[in-house]
């Protein structure tokens, strides 16, 4: 009970914490204040509670696959926002100024959506567990999981923050690219599960090397959206999700050329 509650909360918190720490580190580096975080956290938490309260209605949508479709929609929305953010950031590398209002708005949306998505499961778990007898264990487990997740987020933030400006933005860009591709991969999986996308036999099975159950597997899942048995469709969408922002960056660099070429970094 303890371990499972730790894992449930840790996995969700870690996903959100990593994304948030990357975004805060980057907004510090691009000299934006981090006040937006409070708003997005509040929005995200209320979003998670509202979604958690209405999960039974949402589940009934689209012949019982409403949950998958909603989650996939949220993931894809986060992806789109991340692509926008990546493009703005890549422009920052070129001419050192950000569109403050737009950037802040995008970050608020990303974090609020991410917290809604990840928080819902925690809210549901919390409500489910407090019904049962063993809720003390679960609460202890949730505390442990959340603390570890938040701590990792903090350390990650300070790690990114300690890098030099261009270095940290470049690494942040790559991480965001991977995280965003992971979002697309998760969304495609959810849509396959809902039978909205065609199901296929898995392309490969790497669970012998890195099991999704293992700590490495979980970390890779959080960072890259790792799946041990992906289908061809998932892999293609993953690759596509990485190529699209890079392509857009190159178009931007072509249309508005400046001294630093991002692709050559």
């Amino acid at each position: 009970m303890l371990l499972s509650s730790v894992i449930i909360v840790l996995r969700e918190v870690l996903e959100a914490a990593l994304l948030i720490s990357i975004l805060i580190a980057l907004s510090k580096k691009t000299s934006l204040s981090a006040h937006w975080l409070i708003w997005s956290c509040l929005l995200g938490l209320s979003g998670a509670i509202v979604y958690g309260m209405n999960i039974n209605n949402v589940s009934d949508w689209f012949d019982g696959v409403g949950q998958e479709v909603t989650n996939a929609f949220i993931q894809l929305l986060i992806y789109c926002m991340l692509v926008l953010y990546i493009l703005i950031l890549s422009r920052f590398l070129v001419h050192k100024n950000t569109f403050h209002f737009l950037t802040r708005l995008i970050m608020i949306i990303i974090v609020a959506l991410a917290i809604t998505r990840e928080g819902t499961e925690i809210v549901l778990y919390f409500f489910s567990v407090t019904h049962s007898k063993t809720h003390l264990t679960a609460v202890v487990g949730m505390t442990i999981g959340a603390s570890i997740g938040v701590s990792v987020g903090f350390l990650f933030y300070y790690l990114l923050n300690s890098l030099k400006l261009e270095q940290s933005i470049f690494i942040g860009l790559i991480l965001l690219l991977l995280v965003s591709a992971g979002m697309v991969s998760q969304a495609s999986l959810l849509l396959i599960q809902a039978d909205w996308l065609p199901a296929q036999l898995p392309l490969w099975n790497s669970s012998a090397f890195i099991s999704e159950k293992s700590v490495t597997g979980q970390l890779l899942y959080v960072l890259l959206g790792y799946e041990s048995t992906p289908t061809a469709l998932q892999v293609s969408l993953y690759v596509l999700a990485i190529i699209v922002p890079i392509g857009l960056m190159q178009v931007l660099n072509k249309v508005y050329p400046k001294k630093i070429n991002l692709a050559s970094l």
Binding site: I144, I148, L155, Y158
Partner: peptide, 16 residues
């Protein structure tokens, strides 16, 4: 924050 985070991670992982 860094010290507390590190201790939290270590202590909880050890506890788990």
């Amino acid at each position: 924050i860094v010290i507390l985070s590190t201790i939290t991670i270590m202590a909880f992982l050890a506890a788990l």
